[in-house]
Amino acid sequence: MAQSTTASTSLNARSCDPPQHDLRHPLVGTLTVTQQTLTTSDASDQALVVVTAEPGTASEPALRLLAQATGTTR
């Protein structure tokens, strides 16, 4: 995990009600995810995109499998 060099940088959510998307991935099939994009107030050319699946849905383990396959788990 990268650490910010500026302690005072704040993140701004681009949407208060993040949109849901239905995706089809060749490894995990179809899944419904929520996507939220966060930006910093001082660096508009950088963004952090957070993708989540609703707990208890079939999309949750599919997204976990995809994260493991791409090496992006915590």
Rank of each mutant, 00 (worst) to 15 (best):
residue 13 A to H: 13
residue 13 A to T: 14
residue 13 A to I: 08
residue 14 R to A: 02
residue 14 R to L: 12
residue 15 S to A: 09
residue 15 S to Q: 14
residue 17 D to A: 13
residue 17 D to E: 10
residue 18 P to M: 04
residue 19 P to L: 15
residue 19 P to C: 15
residue 19 P to F: 15
residue 20 Q to M: 07
residue 20 Q to K: 14
residue 20 Q to C: 11
residue 20 Q to E: 12
residue 22 D to E: 06
residue 23 L to K: 12
residue 23 L to M: 14
residue 23 L to F: 11
residue 23 L to N: 13
residue 24 R to Q: 01
residue 25 H to N: 10
residue 26 P to S: 00
residue 26 P to V: 05
residue 27 L to H: 11
residue 27 L to Y: 10
residue 27 L to K: 15
residue 27 L to I: 10
residue 28 V to I: 08
residue 28 V to K: 06
residue 28 V to P: 09
residue 29 G to N: 06
residue 29 G to K: 12
residue 29 G to W: 09
residue 29 G to E: 03
residue 30 T to I: 14
residue 30 T to Q: 14
residue 30 T to P: 10
residue 31 L to I: 08
residue 31 L to E: 04
residue 32 T to L: 03
residue 32 T to D: 00
residue 32 T to S: 06
residue 32 T to C: 02
residue 33 V to K: 07
residue 35 Q to L: 07
residue 35 Q to F: 09
residue 35 Q to R: 15
residue 36 Q to W: 02
residue 36 Q to P: 06
residue 37 T to V: 11
residue 37 T to Y: 04
residue 38 L to A: 07
residue 38 L to F: 05
residue 38 L to D: 04
residue 39 T to E: 09
residue 39 T to G: 05
residue 39 T to K: 15
residue 39 T to F: 01
residue 41 S to T: 13
residue 41 S to G: 10
residue 42 D to F: 07
residue 44 S to W: 13
residue 44 S to M: 08
residue 44 S to Q: 12
residue 45 D to Y: 14
residue 46 Q to H: 14
residue 46 Q to S: 14
residue 46 Q to M: 13
residue 47 A to W: 06
residue 47 A to M: 05
residue 47 A to D: 03
residue 48 L to H: 14
residue 49 V to Y: 03
residue 49 V to H: 15
residue 49 V to D: 07
residue 49 V to G: 12
residue 50 V to Q: 07
residue 50 V to E: 00
residue 50 V to R: 10
residue 50 V to I: 05
residue 51 V to M: 11
residue 52 T to H: 09
residue 52 T to P: 11
residue 52 T to C: 09
residue 53 A to E: 01
residue 54 E to F: 07
residue 55 P to D: 02
residue 55 P to M: 08
residue 56 G to V: 01
residue 56 G to A: 00
residue 56 G to M: 02
residue 57 T to E: 00
residue 57 T to K: 02
residue 58 A to W: 01
residue 58 A to Y: 04
residue 58 A to P: 06
residue 59 S to D: 02
residue 59 S to L: 06
residue 61 P to F: 01
residue 61 P to E: 00
residue 62 A to S: 07
residue 62 A to K: 12
residue 62 A to T: 03
residue 63 L to F: 08
residue 64 R to C: 00
residue 64 R to F: 01
residue 64 R to I: 02
residue 64 R to L: 03
residue 64 R to W: 00
residue 65 L to I: 09
residue 66 L to R: 03
residue 66 L to V: 04
residue 66 L to S: 01
residue 66 L to M: 05
residue 67 A to L: 11
residue 67 A to P: 09
residue 67 A to W: 05
residue 67 A to N: 11
residue 68 Q to V: 05
residue 68 Q to F: 03
residue 68 Q to G: 04
residue 68 Q to Y: 03
residue 69 A to Y: 04
residue 69 A to M: 06
residue 69 A to N: 09
